[in-house]
Computed example of a mutant assay.
Amino acid sequence: MEQAAGDEGRKTQDVLSVSVAYDGDPSCIGAARHLAIGFLTEVQAVHGLPVSERAMGMTQLVVSELVTNAVKYAPGPLMLDLQIIQGAVRVSVWDSDPVLPDIAATDPQRIGRHGLEITLAVSQAYEVRREPVGKRVTVLIALADDPGADIAGRTTP
C-alpha cells in the first residue's frame, strides 16, 4: 500500500483537517479507518473538541464503507479528506469512477451492498457529485450526541 499525505493536521480559520491519497490497494481500507480514529482522537485530546463514542464509531464505519466502495468499484487512486466543521466531521472520498452510487432495491434476501444505506442512516448530510475526473462522496457526522434527542433527532420535552 502506498500512502501520500498532505495537509495533515492543518488548522486554517478554525478548521482542522487531514487529507490522504491512497493507491487503491485493499489494505488502504484499514489504514483509512485508523487515520479517522487517530484524527478524531487528536481533535478531542489536543484541541479539546467533544467527540462522542458514537461519532468515533460512525465515522470509522462511514470511512470504511466509502473507501471500500472506492477500492471495489473504482480501480486506481483515491483520496480521503476529513475536516471538522461546525460540530461535525466532514468525510469526503474521491475516486476515479464517474458512475454515481445508488441504493439497491429493497431485498431481504440480498447479502451485501448495504454500505450506502448504512452511510445515509448514520449521517446528518450526504452529497455525491461528479468531478472533472471521477466523483466525490461527502458525508457529515455530528461529533457530539444530543442527550435530549430521540433516535430520529427530535428533542424530547
Rank of each mutant, 00 (worst) to 15 (best):
R33D: 06
D25P: 02
N69Y: 00
G134I: 09
P147W: 08
T12Q: 11
Y73V: 01
D14P: 00
T41A: 13
I84G: 00
T106V: 14
V93A: 05
P132V: 10
V62W: 09
L40N: 01
Q60R: 13
R110G: 04
T59N: 00
T41N: 13
V139C: 06
P77K: 13
D25N: 15
S123R: 01
I84L: 11
P157T: 09
V51I: 08
S64K: 11
L16V: 08
A104V: 15
Q60G: 11
D145G: 06
L66A: 08
L143M: 01
D23V: 09
V20Y: 05
L40A: 03
R130K: 15
K135L: 12
D107K: 01
V93P: 06
P77Q: 13
R110F: 05
G24H: 10
L143I: 00
L78H: 08
G9Q: 08
M1H: 10
S52Q: 02
E65R: 02
T41W: 06
L66S: 07
V71D: 07
L78V: 10
A74C: 09
A31F: 05
P75C: 02
R136N: 13
A36I: 02
V122E: 05
S96V: 14
C28I: 04
P157M: 07
D150H: 02
V122F: 08
T41R: 15
N69V: 02
Q109I: 04
P77W: 12
A149T: 04
S27R: 15
P101C: 04
G115R: 06
V46N: 02
G48K: 05
P108Q: 04
S96A: 15
A45V: 07
L61I: 12
L82A: 05
E117T: 14
I111T: 15
V91H: 06
L82G: 03
A105I: 12
D25E: 14
L16H: 04
G87T: 02
T106K: 08
Q13M: 07
V62P: 05
G153K: 03
A32D: 06
E42Q: 09
R54T: 14
P77N: 10
E127W: 02
V99M: 08
A152G: 01
E117R: 11
L49S: 01
A88T: 04
A121N: 13
S92M: 01
V67A: 05
R33K: 14
L116M: 14
P50E: 09
G134K: 07
E8I: 15
L80K: 08
N69W: 01
A32F: 05
V43F: 00
I151H: 10
S96D: 12
E127L: 11
G30L: 12
P50F: 03
A21N: 09
E127N: 12
D146Q: 07
Q60L: 02
I151D: 14
T155K: 12
T59G: 07
A21H: 09
H47W: 14
L61E: 10
L140D: 15
L143A: 02
H114L: 14
A32G: 04
G134L: 07
E8C: 08
A5E: 13
V46F: 06
D107I: 04
V15C: 01
I141K: 00
L80C: 01
